[in-house]
């Protein structure tokens, strides 16, 4: 059962990483316009430099 002392913290940590990723996407407004984002990759508008 000693393996549990490792596995449980590891699983929590990995899950926590995913959660942190989710919080980051949420904070940076990545769920505001899903349709638009899927279309915007098709334009060449800001390919040379990032949008100001």
């Amino acid at each position: 059962m000693n393996v549990l002392t490792w596995l449980i913290p590891v699983s929590l940590l990995l899950g926590g990483l995913g959660l942190a990723g989710f919080v980051w996407t949420l904070r940076s407004s990545q769920y505001d316009d899903p349709d638009g984002d899927s279309q915007r990759i098709l334009t060449n508008d800001w390919d040379d430099k990032p949008r100001p």
Partner: peptide
């Protein structure tokens, strides 16, 4: 409805003097 519409609208609005930023939301 499309990527072309998004950039056409944003470009057009940015050419109007006084408009500092324009952002299309296609979902809405």
């Amino acid at each position: 409805h499309c990527a072309g519409c998004i950039s056409a609208v944003e470009r057009k609005l940015l050419t109007i003097p006084g408009v500092t930023s324009a952002r299309v939301n296609l979902s809405l």
